[in-house]
């Protein structure tokens, strides 16, 4: 992995410390994420993948160290966050479009700008369902797509995805994954993806961070130099298989190492 200069980093983590009930999950953890990159975080259960992005998103306090966005703390930047459970993340009392407008209203944008962003997102994701429907009348994939649109609407400096496809069926996952990589790459959105699906992590990421059991360290930092866009054929390409083999090897050792 080439070194990331401070100017290229959208997110820098330095000397992060976090413990739960006296058990250290992070004890001096550091990370830089390059602007425009999609970083996938992969590791054994309980290694604190979600804990890391929750601390970065300001949803969980840190015990020590710092997490900076180009020198600023999380309260000073726009971030997007897509939760695993879309059913509990969307506001069911608001229509899908109103859910997407919500963060834009909080930003105090003008109505015309809000509508422009909504339309551009709907076009980018080729939305064919009715955005005026209430979330509960949409399918699971459509609901998670609305969550993703809501997170992207603010044009976030960093987008966090917490196992966004784990509650969806494989067919829906494949199509949503394809759409998502196109949009993220077109918008050059810096993204951190937490996933427990290795294939998904490799397909979506520019870089995979393999974590160890706690106290969590970086077991390996792997660049994914596969061409964009990545399609169904990518999954059987030799490069893909080589990366997957390397990741599996690291993962097995990381899990066994505990």
């Amino acid at each position: 992995m080439n070194a990331i200069t401070p100017r290229e980093a959208a997110l820098s983590v330095r000397g992060l410390r976090k413990a739960f009930a006296g058990v250290a999950v992070y004890d001096g953890f550091s990370l830089d994420v390059k602007r425009g990159d999609i970083l996938a975080i992969f590791g054994p259960n309980g290694c604190g993948k979600s804990t890391l992005i929750n601390m970065a998103a300001g949803l969980l306090p840190v015990d020590g160290g710092e997490i900076l966005y180009d020198g600023r703390i999380v309260d000073e930047v726009r971030i997007g966050y897509v939760f695993q459970n879309y059913r509990e993340a969307l506001f069911p009392w608001r229509r899908a479009a109103e859910n997407i407008r919500y963060p834009l209203r909080r930003m105090g944008l003008k109505r015309a700008e809000i509508e422009r962003r909504l339309e551009s997102l709907a076009a980018d994701f080729r939305v064919r369902f009715d955005l005026n429907a209430y979330p509960y009348s949409l399918s699971g994939g459509q609901q998670q797509l609305v969550s993703i649109m809501r997170a992207l609407a603010v044009e976030p400096e960093v987008l966090f995805l917490d196992e966004p496809f784990s509650a969806l069926d494989y067919e829906t996952t494949l199509s949503l994954r394809t759409l998502l990589q196109q949009v993220l790459k077109a918008r050059k959105t810096t993204t951190i993806l937490v996933s427990h699906d290795l294939e998904e992590s490799i397909v979506l990421a520019d870089r995979i961070l393999m974590l160890t059991r706690r106290p969590t360290l970086v077991a390996d930092d792997i660049a994914v130099d596969l061409a964009w866009p990545r399609e169904a054929a990518t999954l059987s390409a030799p490069d893909f298989i080589a990366i997957k083999a390397r990741c599996l090897d690291v993962f097995t050792r990381a899990v066994a190492g505990a």
């Binding site: 949803l59 509990e88 506001f91 809501r150």
Partner: peptide, 9 residues
């Protein structure tokens, strides 16, 4: 939902 609202500012 509370966290989602907080993250959205």
């Amino acid at each position: 939902r509370l966290l989602a609202a907080r993250v959205m500012g």
